[in-house]
Design a protein around this nucleic acid. Sequence first.
DNA 1: AGCCAGATGATCACTTTTAATCACTTCTGC
DNA 2: GCAGAAGTGATTAAAAGTGATCATCTGGCT
Lengths: 260, 260
Amino acid sequence: MNRSDREDDILQLLSGRTSVGIAEIATHFSVSEATARRDVQQMAGSGLVRRVRGGATLRGISRLEPLFRDKEDRAARAKRAIAASASSLIRDGNTIYLDGGSTVLSLAPLLDTRRNLTIVTNSVMAAVKLLDTRHRLLLTGGEFRSLSRTLVGPLTEALLEQLQFDIAFMGTMGFSVERGMMTTDPNEAFTKAQAMSRAGTVALLMDSSKFNATALARTGTASDIDILITEAADDSLCQQLAEHHVLVQIATSSNKSLSH
Amino acid sequence: MNRSDREDDILQLLSGRTSVGIAEIATHFSVSEATARRDVQQMAGSGLVRRVRGGATLRGISRLEPLFRDKEDRAARAKRAIAASASSLIRDGNTIYLDGGSTVLSLAPLLDTRRNLTIVTNSVMAAVKLLDTRHRLLLTGGEFRSLSRTLVGPLTEALLEQLQFDIAFMGTMGFSVERGMMTTDPNEAFTKAQAMSRAGTVALLMDSSKFNATALARTGTASDIDILITEAADDSLCQQLAEHHVLVQIATSSNKSLSH
DNA sequence: AGCCAGATGATCACTTTTAATCACTTCTGC
DNA sequence: GCAGAAGTGATTAAAAGTGATCATCTGGCT
C-alpha cells in the first residue's frame, strides 16, 4: 500500500462520517503515526480534508452535500413559502440578483411566471437551475467556492460594480438585529456586501433557524436590509427591526401577511 | 510484444482495480523495471493513468466509468482521443482556460490526473463537471448564452482582461487555414478572441468534421493558434499550417504523433 | 494559573523509488 | 546494407517515503 492509495482510502474512510483520527489511520493502514500525520498534512495542503487536532475532518462539498440535503428536507416547506412570498416582490422587466444558499435557490423555479427579467447570480446552483430560462441570465464570475457553490472574490466584486439591480435576494448563515448578517467566509461576506450595495431593494430570505445564529464574518447590518422575509417572527423582533426601517414579511404555506 | 501493445494491456491490468505497481508490470510483461517505468510515464503524459510513486493508478472519472467498455459513436471517441492528447500539454500547477464546446468539455474529466491547476472557464457545462474538483476553479462571468451554454459579452471580456493563462483550450464551429476559426455568434467570437489573447499557448481542439466548415463570425486566424489537436489530418494541411507556425498534434486512441 | 497527557513538528537514519545516463539491440526508411 | 530513430536493460546519484526520537505546543483538568 503506497502513499496515493492511502490518500484515496482515507477519503473512503471519511465517507461515512465527518472525522477520522491519526491513530485510526495509522492502525488501519499499518503505518506509523508519523506517516499518517504526514498523509493528512499533505491532503490538507491540497484541500482534500481539513486538519484538526488529532486527525482530519471532511471539508467542502463532500460534507456539505448530505447536510445541504438534510437541511433541504427539514426546512423545505419553510423555504418554499419564503420563496413564494419573495417572488411577489418581483415585477415584469425587473433586474434581480440571486445570492447563494438553499432558500434563495428555491426562488429560481418561481421566476418562470414573470416576463423579461434580467437575473444576475453568483450561485452556480441557481445558474444551473436557470439554464433553460427564457429570461436574460448573467453570472458574476470569479473564484468558485465549493462550500457554498458560489462565485466570490475580487473578480466577482469588480464585475458587480458594473451592474445595478432592482432587488437583491440575499441568503445568510446567521442574523441578529445587533450583529446583522453573518457568514462563515470573509471573502463571501465581502461579495455579499458588494451585491447588496448595488441593489435598490435588499430582500433577506431567511428561515427562522438563522435567527441569532452567529458566524465569523459580518456581511451587513440590519439597516442594510429593506425587507426581511421569514416564516416565523415574534412581535419584539418586528419592533426592533422596524427601528432599523426593515419591513418584515411573514411567509406561510397558504398566504402571507405583512407587518411593519 | 511492443510498446503500444503493452500500453493497452496495462490498462487492461488496471481495469479491475485502482492501482498497479512498477514491479508488477515488469514481471507481467517480462521487461525491466526501467521499461515499465517509461511506459507508465508516457501513459501518464497522455492522461491515461495517474503516475504515483511505485506505479500507476486510475483516478476520478476514469475509475468510476468503465471508459473502455461502452460503445460510442466515432465522433465521441475522436473527441476523447483529442482531449487525452490535449491533456498531455498540461503540467501540474498550470493555469488553463477551457472554452465552450463538447470537445473541450471532454477534457474536464482528465484534469483529475493533474495537481494544483487553476482552471478558468466561460463554459457553464465545464464548471458543472468540475464542481467537485480539488483544483482552483474560476468562472468568467458575463451573459449566459443558452445555445452554447457559455458566458459571453463585455462583462466576460472585462474579467478576462484581468487574467493570464498558460494554455487556452479552444473549441470552434469551423476552421480553415485561409479563413481561420469561425463561430455563429459575433459576441461569442469576441469573447473567444479575448480569451486567446490572454494565453501563452493557444491549443485548438477540433475533430476533423470542422475542417472547412464555415460560420458567420471569425474568432481568429490560423496564426493565432499555437497547436492544433485533431484526430485526422493530411500532409498538405500540416504543410499549410506549418507555414503559420502551427504545430499539429494527431490524436489516436492508443498513441499520438507530432508533426511540424 | 499551573499541570499533564497527548499531539505536533522537526530532524535523523534508513529504505525504496525515480530520473538520468550509457551502451546495446531492434526497427525503419532509403 | 546503412544510417538514424526508437526501444531496452543496467548503473548510479538524487529524491521521496518511512519510522523513530525528542523538544515543543495544545487543550483540558484541577
